[in-house]
Design a protein around this nucleic acid. Structure first.
Lengths: 345, 345
DNA sequence: GCGCACGATGCAATCGTTTGCACTGATGGT
DNA sequence: ACCATCAGTGCAAACGATTGCATCGTGCGC
């Protein structure tokens, strides 16, 4: 009486057996039940305000209609759109997501993985960033369905969706070359992070392909994908590579720090130094100068990854990997190379 | 054999009854089992890699160790820290969160509410922003445990945790008055949003308490808590209230738009116009000029709200409401009132 | 008019844990 | 020496849904 109505209550109200009520309520078994009974059951359910207990259903059906999402940090404007995309794709299909922040720590990652497995998630979306496999290997060994979002692995254990960082970097370099830059530095993110690794390789590649001097285009290693690393990187570049006229940053947060570093050093951007970011995070356009960057469709990463996972859960064939296009967004932080390097410094 | 080991498997391996195994595995029933048996069961569980099925346990125990979180938009740098705080508080206690974005839509809100109830969440954290009650009333009527984060309701149905917006606004006005401003405009967020309402009232109050002319301190209504509203607000203010020397913004996103609007209008900030935001979102310090704003401890909102909910779920007494302190962060976007208003325009 | 098929429903097992209760020895007090 | 107590364990019923199988009429074909 009191409390949440159960299937039994509905069945009793409709004068049928719980089994019949279940079939009447369920879309794809409804045809087994006579129309009159269906109507009676539906009415009773309506009247009592019945909603099926997803936990009980999950137990019996052995599928919980939930997925686990591992992401470095929800708070990072870079990543939030991914989980938004995931939820936008999941919720219309009756799925919901468990989200955990890994902070790139294997401990946290594993803890979340175990917690989610205990909760019988139907699959995982790994948007965690560390380049080594960690729980991804475990998931593979255990045969747990999963999809990678915003990353790949060296050996492709799972379907993945990621941005075309290689093309993005090509566009950046070509853009800068076109503006007359010949000495371009790169502030790289950590190489143990998937994106950090890929982008550094691409930077080197396109520096070379565009006939730039590799010596004149140094790669400065940042500690993290954050703004302090950008500040430190700029300082290092100004000190050791004073002839550089443009700085490419491993991502937008690094670029934020780089812009601040330039201001601290009294160097005008883009007049004296161009800065380019990567990702086009929210607010990138609102910085001053507004940030030239490569737009990576983070929301789509999440959405597509979720769709692929659902498709896999439905036993449909699924692509081995999806590379979403990236494109350069030219804004205020990049401009023509200054004519007289070193002038006035 | 194949598949995930169950309690039965552990029991069989340890040569005990599943009931005994359950008691041995569970911290607070362990004392009912002889030490020797406990050890045997633990060893078996270890060996088989057993983890309890949280779904089955949830069904039996009638508590899922999950909570539902309703938030306007994960993607908004304003809100992400709240859910981060929630998860940081929940996960050490073995709880996990379901998160849904409401986009301030009652439809989405209700859909998520129902979905989470079906999943037998133990309680809710409402960080959704609409001022009317919506699902909060439903939760109350149904007797579902809940806590409000980053908001209150007119009638206090649930415990809440929020920032001291009133004090924050006082600090803003005092700061501006101290800088010599006497004609201060306010670009308000929507009044049907909890924060929008509270802050507008506080603005009016402290304008008055500081002896400013209410006529000289107009409130301009924004459509949303976003940057376009800030741009539109600035335009409106410049046109209709040209003597204003400082603009307070309903939140930082509005301030972002306001800063851009000033740039478009060729008005220097802070030299000709001061701008103050609200919330101190991430990147607020990285704007140019860096944004003077009120720091609201969003992460703490989430954390505290989660703690209160857990406390309530454990049947402990819980505060009726918690008001966390806010404080002004003086940065570059606010400065002395210009001497000669209208000069040169 | 008989049998077969089939539509509609009931029955009961099952998913994996937890937990109140019953049972069994052994202990200890008198 | 006997009974009460108690620690330790087994038993089985839940929790709330789903689903293979059995059952029961009824209608149809021959």
């Amino acid at each position: 009486m009191a409390g949440i109505p159960t299937l039994h209550d509905v069945a009793r109200a409709a004068q049928v057996h719980p089994g019949t009520a279940s079939r009447a309520l369920n879309e794809d078994t409804r045809s087994m039940v006579s129309p009159a009974t269906v109507e009676r059951v539906l009415a009773a359910a309506q009247r009592l305000g019945y909603t099926a207990n997803a936990v009980a259903r999950g137990l019996r059906r052995q599928r919980s209609q939930t997925v686990g999402v591992l992401i470095p940090d929800l708070t990072n404007p870079m990543f939030a759109p991914i989980v938004r995309g995931i939820e936008d794709a999941l919720s219309p299909m009756g799925f919901t997501a468990f989200v955990a922040n890994t902070d790139n720590s294997e401990i946290k990652e594993r803890r979340a993985f175990d917690a989610f497995r205990a909760r019988q998630v139907d699959g995982f979306i790994f948007a965690n960033a560390r380049r080594d496999l960690g729980v991804i290997q475990d998931a593979f060994d255990l045969g747990v369905p999963a999809v990678l979002a915003n990353r790949t692995t060296d050996i492709a254990l799972f379907p993945w969706v990621a941005g075309d960082d290689d093309s993005g970097m090509r566009q950046i370099i070509e853009h800068l070359v076109e503006l007359g830059h010949r000495r371009i530095a790169y502030i790289a993110g950590p190489q143990n992070i998937s994106a950090g690794h890929v982008r550094t390789i691409a930077f080197r590649r396109y520096v070379e392909e565009n006939g730039l001097s590799v010596q004149a285009c140094p790669v400065v290693q940042g500690d993290a994908f954050d703004s302090p690393s950008g500040g430190a990187g700029v300082q290092h570049i100004l000190q050791h590579y004073p002839t550089v006229t443009a700085i490419v940053c491993g991502n937008d947060m690094i670029a934020v720090g780089a812009l601040a570093g330039l201001r601290d050093a009294g160097i005008a951007c883009p007049a004296e130094m161009s800065i380019v970011g990567f990702n086009d995070m929210s607010l990138a356009r609102d910085l001053l100068p507004s940030l030239t960057t490569v737009r990576a469709p983070m929301h789509q990463f999440g959405q597509k990854a979720a769709e692929m996972l659902l498709s896999e859960l439905a036993n449909n064939e699924v692509e081995k990997g999806v590379l979403l296009p990236t494109h350069l967004v030219e804004r205020g932080s990049s401009g023509p190379a200054r004519e007289h390097e070193l002038a006035g410094r």
